[in-house]
């Protein structure tokens, strides 16, 4: 844990050292940066970013913000939640380390997602001090998420690789489209959870890197420049486009994650607070893991 903190602080020092160098945007580099624009041999990322940002990004986020909860409401009304007995035995699933790491990430997300939405629809909030404060909060919450994203990635990775169960799980959409209680093929984590894990950790890292480059704007990291071959301004355009596209996916699955843990599987959220899952819940929703636990005599 401490190691990551040191790494993070060290990287902050590195970026501030980069500031001391010449501007990558407005000094001599400006020629290289603006030459890219509109020329045949350039990547034309400027017009691409302008077109996407002006016509599609805000609308896509609005569609997710309204559409995903609407689908869930329909699902809740038509099919309804899965209720499992909370009186039976419990299965210890998440260690204290798992829970702390998850909670820090959860709190970070609860700040990151609303502040991000406020920035996307900044014009509706009138811009100015309020939206500026949300932007700063967005940046601050990134720090706590950045601290836990690597521990989170490492602590669950061994359970997250693709398994035959996952394909079966996907074929029946995890059994969430039927009202009957049937054992669903899944290990400790089901295919939905695995998708969310990869998106939240790897996607989250992309969000941190692209967000940081837009925040620091005028940095000079020779490694990135030589690796990508992009001019500073094109690098920022790529960052802005990626931040919106990956952000859209992260937000959509974040909503799914909340809906599953809070609404659909009644009381499932307690497992990440206390560390214990209901035995009946494990038996049906993580049937392969349940069988394995039984076989190993861990129940």
């Amino acid at each position: 844990m401490k190691k990551y903190l040191f790494l993070f602080i060290a990287s902050l020092f590195l970026t501030s050292a980069a500031f001391a160098a010449d501007s990558q945007i407005w000094d001599a580099m400006r020629i290289q940066n603006i030459l890219e624009y509109g020329q045949d041999e350039s990547l034309k990322l400027g017009p691409l970013f302008t077109m996407l940002q002006a016509n599609y990004f805000a609308q896509a986020f609005l569609a997710v913000l309204v559409g995903v909860p609407a689908v869930f409401l329909l699902h809740y009304l038509v099919i309804g939640p899965k209720v499992f007995s909370h009186d039976g035995k419990k299965v210890y699933t998440f260690s204290i380390f798992n829970r702390i790491v998850h909670q820090i990430a959860a709190i970070s997300f609860m700040v990151l997602v609303p502040t991000g939405f406020i920035m996307i629809f900044g014009a509706n909030f009138g811009g100015g001090d309020f939206v500026r404060m949300m932007k700063d909060l967005h940046g601050l919450a990134t720090i706590s998420f950045a601290i836990v994203v690597i521990p989170m990635f490492l602590m669950w990775i061994k359970d997250m690789f693709l398994h035959l169960d996952d394909i079966k799980w996907l074929m029946i959409v995890g059994g969430y489209l039927s009202k009957t209680k049937r054992p669903v093929p899944a290990g400790k984590f089901n295919a939905g959870q695995k998708t969310w894990y990869w998106l939240a950790t790897l996607g989250g890292m992309i969000m941190i890197l692209t967000g940081a480059s837009m925040y620091f704007l005028d940095f000079n990291i020779a490694m990135i420049n030589s690796l990508t071959g992009l001019s500073q301004i094109d690098l920022l355009r790529v960052a802005a486009i990626l931040h919106a596209v990956v952000g859209l996916a992260v937000v959509a699955l974040f909503f799914v994650h909340i809906y599953m843990s809070v609404f659909v599987i009644k009381g499932a959220i307690h497992s990440i607070i206390t560390g214990y899952k209901e035995e009946e819940e494990v038996k049906y929703l993580h049937s392969s893991w349940y069988k394995k636990l039984k076989k190993d005599g861990k129940l």
Binding site: S16, F19, I25, W26, R30, N33, I34, Y37, G38, G46, F49, T50, Q53, M119, G122, G126, G127, G128, V131, R132, K135, D136, G139, M214, Y215, F216, L217, D218, I233, L236, R237, A240
Partner: peptide, 28 residues
Amino acid sequence: ICIGCGYCLYACPFGAPQFPRDGAFGTK
């Protein structure tokens, strides 16, 4: 009204928008 997000700079063909770094921790 401007929040200093930098999007205008990414869109500008001339690199015209400037961002004075006046805040703490390098905020734009």
